[in-house]
Design a protein around this nucleic acid. Structure first.
Lengths: 138, 138
DNA sequence: TATTGTTATACTCTATAACTATA
DNA sequence: TATAGTTATAGAGTATAACAATA
């Protein structure tokens, strides 16, 4: 569903993940590669294409002249918010048939599965707040 | 997780979906395009690459000489089974932390959400048996 | 005329390896 | 020497449009 919503705005799942990751970070290319699980050269091209569309920009690092920081533009932030909101509405609609009590149960069980799955891989989802955001690539 | 398991055997998610779809069907290129949600020219290339690896073969249709049927080879079937089994084990391990009762509850609630979501799009999951198979592209 | 599948073309996405600028 | 990022290259995956063969 996220991919379909992104497609409505003419961009891909990985571009959506890029925008999502940048909503609360200003990472370097290397950090982005780790966050997205990609090679740094892949990220370089990804950022090129997003920059060409005016969604992100490269900011030279003040402390290390080899390095750049990648940040959302206003257009990029607006697009990320719109796609995220629509995706959230999709999920809400999908859960509509359940009673409120069943939705609460489902949320509790799934959260536990996901948190423990992440913990088994050394990621503390409760600490980062990643569990509260949709489409952030985490 | 499915993509990661597929990657262990050197192939992609879409190739895995192709093999999964072919486990109980022998569709034409056009039918595959509908099943996978792709353009027929994309499917033509997809089948080319799978055929080059010996995983599928093209069988000329007996009734329409324009048409071909795509079928798994023995190698393709073995690979599909192996990836499917590993993915099933991944899911089982992920649900391990839950009690048996919680697993049953989660299964019941998720099944209902998915079945109704499919029904809203005109797909009867209970009739096709698609709900009983992992990695079949449905 | 219409349909099936392939091919030509163009673009995104991905990785590896080589490169540059800086550290 | 080591690291950050880019570029060259190669390949998969995708769509559109044009095409050949068949219906």
């Amino acid at each position: 569903m996220l991919e379909r919503r992104a497609g409505e705005h003419g961009f891909s799942l990985i571009q959506t993940r890029l925008l999502g990751v940048l909503r609360d970070r200003r990472p370097t290319i290397n950090e982005l590669a780790t966050l997205l699980g990609l090679n740094k050269s892949s990220v370089s091209g990804l950022v090129d294409r997003a920059e060409r569309r005016g969604l992100v920009r490269r900011i030279p690092s003040a402390v290390d002249r080899r390095s750049v920081q990648v940040a959302l533009t206003e257009d990029g932030r607006a697009l990320a918010s719109k796609v995220s909101a629509r995706f959230g509405a999709d999920v809400a609609a999908m859960l509509g048939p359940l009673t409120a009590a069943d939705r609460a149960t489902l949320t509790r069980l799934l959260s536990r599965v996901l948190v423990e799955h992440a913990a088994a891989r050394g990621v503390d989802m409760l600490a980062t707040g990643a569990n509260a955001r949709a489409g952030d690539g985490g």
